[in-house]
Design a protein around this nucleic acid. Structure first.
Lengths: 219, 219
DNA sequence: TTACTACCGACTGTTAGCAGTCGACTTAAG
DNA sequence: CTTAAGTCGACTGCTAACAGTCGGTAGTAA
């Protein structure tokens, strides 16, 4: 009867590897591990209190997410983004999300879609007076929802693979620049466009949103 | 004076992890490891003659590439694709490659681009009488080149992350269906559209190509 | 037969440790 | 002072072994 506190819902006990993954992702996208920083496996494993083997599995994943770059002898360092790379990341992001918007327009029951998106917007509105981190979080949640609602698992997976790079872009440009893109109204426009069911309009709206977002970051 | 056979060019001696990665990728996309097949770490490590630790690093990467799916207790199995998933994969692929085509049109020197693409087309033409595998290989090389030439590393990386899923789609649908999409002429059309510098046309051409490609696979 | 329990085999999660290599620093010869 | 050889430390690549857990199976009692 004991020991079943957490594992009831989907909140199962995460493996050490997953914990390390989350911890490192947060450390990197928060700037605690500054870009260019050289990562030493022994150091990290001691910090996180896990073995090198377990750590290395997490590092491979971060490497593939684009948060780490590999040097000459397998040396890993935190990826450094310049302005061109930020624009490139946002170009790919725009391609993915415009596909999402287009797909949502062609969905049979847009009722549930609209509902979920409005819920996400509400969360953003609520976060307006919160911390910068909270606002960014709710914004990303909105866009992640956009991809999830399409029902295209591959699309969602691709977007999530890019999420780390997106976070780095925002962090890199500076959070104060990043929040310029958190306008609730602009996001309402996106939902509105999807509501009309006009795929061309929805795509255009997303592309414009991404364009200005990228411009705001590198400006 | 001995032992410097390979490491001269970029052909450095690959680590065991990378070798295992390639071997497994090939085994999966060739169907040697059939979809749904349950993977046991101890079995694989013995087969590949490497330790479980090294193997696990490779497995993490394959998992993130979408070639493996994780079951209840960390059990991994070869991903199984149904027709919807194939369509979904090709939708994402289309989004990425249409971005590539659009980007190439806006590039300052399209001279080099045209040259490289024509070279890729020549390789396809040469492979026309070769084996099915060779034809597929040259086709993928063409599309990979498309992404590489944009200079957008993120785009290339995203496409390569999807490449395994694309290969699985072709394998899954059957190679004889897959080769229907290897028409040299249709690829010449793509290059032609890019040559004109008309981004809208280039995008449209790629989207049509991907549409028929997906249709051919699930038909 | 049914239900319950104890046990065994299989497999993943995790760890500590060995081995090879590259770079920096030191030392000695010119 | 400069250069070449030797040495040490740091760090990654890789491996073998331990630990925990789930699923099934045999055995026992009602």
């Amino acid at each position: 009867m004991a020991g079943l506190g957490a594992p009831l819902l989907g909140l199962e006990k995460k493996s050490l590897r997953e914990q390390a993954l989350s911890a490192l992702r947060t450390a990197i996208t928060s700037g605690e591990l500054e870009p260019g920083r050289h990562l030493v496996e022994t150091e990290l494993s001691e910090m996180l209190q896990i073995s090198r083997g377990t750590l290395r599995e997490a590092l491979r994943q971060l490497e593939q997410e684009g948060l780490l770059s590999a040097g000459p002898r397998g040396r890993l360092s935190v990826r450094h983004l310049d302005e061109k790379e930020i624009r490139d990341i946002y170009a790919v992001r725009a391609a993915l999300e415009s596909l999402a918007a287009r797909t949502l327009c062609e969905l049979p029951d847009r009722q549930h879609v609209t509902e979920s998106l409005h819920k996400a917007i509400d969360a953003m509105t609520e976060a307006t007076n919160g911390s910068l981190e909270e606002r960014i979080e709710s914004d990303l949640e909105f866009h992640r929802t956009l991809c999830r609602l399409t029902g295209n698992e591959t699309l969602l997976h691709s977007w999530e693979s890019l999420e780390g790079s997106i976070r780095m872009s925002i962090m890199f440009a500076g959070l104060e620049k990043g929040v310029r893109n958190m306008s609730v109204d602009r996001h309402k426009d996106i939902v509105g466009a999807i509501d009309t069911g006009d795929a061309t309009l929805a795509r255009k709206t997303i592309l414009e949103h991404m364009d200005t977002a990228a411009a705001n970051l590198v400006a």
